[in-house]
Design a protein around this nucleic acid. Structure first.
Lengths: 101, 101
DNA sequence: AAAAGCACTTTGCATCACAAAGTAATAACG
DNA sequence: CGTTATTACTTTGTGATGCAAAGTGCTTTT
C-alpha cells in the first residue's frame, strides 16, 4: 500500500481547471490579455473574469490596465509568488503521477 | 503565445483533489478499504464517502462489500473505465506541464 | 446617431464540498 | 452482561463555488 498522502502538496487554488489553465498560460507568456485568455481557454468572459480575480486576490497574478490607442487593454502576468505556488503544485502533481507509474 | 487550450483534456470528475487522490491510490493498489483511504487522504469519513460514491456512480470505481470475520469490510478497486479515464487525465496534465516547461 | 464590440462587473441560481450528527453493526473493557 | 468505543457509512445542513446571463460604460464602426 502507498504510504503518504498523494494530494498533500496540492494547492487548493489550482483545483479549478480554469485557474490551472490560466496559470499554465501565464507561466509561459510574459503577459497576456483578457481576450487571448478567453479564446485559449474557451470560457465565457464572466467566468474567466472571476477566476482572474481570485488569482489576483491570491497574489499569483498581477494585472496591468493599459491602453492600446484609446482602448483599454488589460494584461495579466504571473507574480513571483504565483511562480512559486504553481511550480510547487506541478511538483506535487508529478509526485502523485510518479506514484501511479 | 501558446496555441491550444491547455485544459481541454482534463476530466471534470478529477478536478476535485480528493477524487484525484482516490484514483491515484486505487490505480496502484489492487484494492483498498475505506479506513485506509481515509487515513491516507486525511479526510473526514462523510466527505470521503460522498466522493467514493461519485466515483462509483461515474463508473470509475467498483465497490465490494465483504467481511473480515464478522465485520463488514468494504473494498474499492478501479474499473477498466476508471483506468482509462485516469490515464487520459494524467496524460492531459502531462501535456499541460510540458507546455509550461 | 445608432448599432455593435470589448472588457469587464453584477446577479442569480444550481451544484458542490464539507463537517457534523445520526445510525447500525460489531468489538473491547470492566 | 452492560457500557463504551469503533467502524463504516448515510443523512443533513450550510456555506462556498462555478457558471451563464444580463448589465455597464466605453469605444468603434457604419
Amino acid at each position: 500500500m502507498a504510504v503518504n498522502n498523494p494530494i498533500a502538496g496540492l494547492n487548493k487554488i489550482f483545483d479549478n481547471r480554469i485557474r490551472l489553465g490560466v496559470m499554465s498560460i501565464v507561466s509561459v507568456n510574459e503577459e497576456i490579455n483578457f481576450n487571448d485568455l478567453k479564446q485559449l481557454l474557451e470560457v465565457t468572459d464572466g467566468n474567466l473574469a472571476t477566476h482572474l480575480q481570485t488569482l489576483e486576490e491570491s497574489g499569483f497574478l498581477k494585472v496591468h490596465k493599459g491602453f492600446v490607442g484609446r482602448k483599454t487593454n488589460t494584461t495579466y502576468a504571473i507574480t513571483k509568488a504565483g511562480e512559486k505556488a504553481f511550480k510547487d503544485h506541478i511538483q506535487a502533481l508529478e509526485n502523485m503521477i510518479r506514484g501511479v507509474k
